[in-house]
Simulated scan of single mutants.
Amino acid sequence: MDERVTQQIIEAIADVEGVEPENLHNVLEDEVSTDAIRELVNHSSNSWRLQFETRNHIIQVMGNNTILVDGKQKRASF
C-alpha cells in the first residue's frame, strides 16, 4: 500500500508544530487506522473526507489531495 499519504499527514502535523517529523511525540498509528486512510486514498472516487482528532490536533484528509491540520491547509500529492 501507498505510504505517501500517511507520511504527508505526519509532515503536515510537524509543520504546524514547527518540528521535524521525527521529533513528533505522537505516533499516527496510535491515533487512527492508517490502513483505513490508505484504502480511502485508493478509492476510485476523490469525493471523500476523513476527519480525526489526535491529542493536540484536528486533522482532515480529503480526496482532492488536501490535508488540513487545525484548519491550516497543506497541499499533498497522494
Rank of each mutant, 00 (worst) to 15 (best):
K74N: 11
L40P: 10
G18I: 08
E22H: 14
L28W: 02
L50R: 13
H25F: 15
A14I: 01
E17T: 04
E53R: 12
K72P: 07
N65T: 07
N23P: 15
A14C: 01
Q60P: 10
V69H: 05
D15F: 07
N56L: 08
M62E: 14
R49M: 07
D15P: 06
S45C: 03
V69I: 08
V32H: 00
E20I: 09
G71D: 04
E22W: 14
F78M: 05
V16F: 12
E29Q: 10
F52A: 11
S47L: 12
N56W: 10
D30P: 05
F78L: 07
Q60N: 14
V41K: 03
F78V: 04
I10C: 08
L28V: 00
E39P: 02
I13T: 08
V5L: 03
D30Y: 03
D35R: 06
L40D: 11
V69K: 03
A14P: 00
I37S: 04
S77L: 05
I10R: 10
G63D: 00
M62C: 14
Q51T: 03
A12Y: 01
R75Q: 04
E20Q: 14
A12V: 00
S33H: 11
L50S: 13
S33R: 09
S45N: 06
L68I: 02
I9Y: 03
A36K: 11
V27Y: 15
S45E: 04
R4N: 02
M62L: 14
G71A: 03
G18P: 09
Q60R: 14
V19W: 06
E31C: 05
D15G: 10
K74R: 13
N42M: 09
D70E: 07
L40M: 14
L68H: 04
D70K: 04
Q7C: 06
I59G: 00
D15S: 09
V69Q: 05
L40N: 13
M1P: 02
I37P: 00
T34S: 04
V32A: 00
H25K: 15
R49L: 08
T54G: 09
D30K: 07
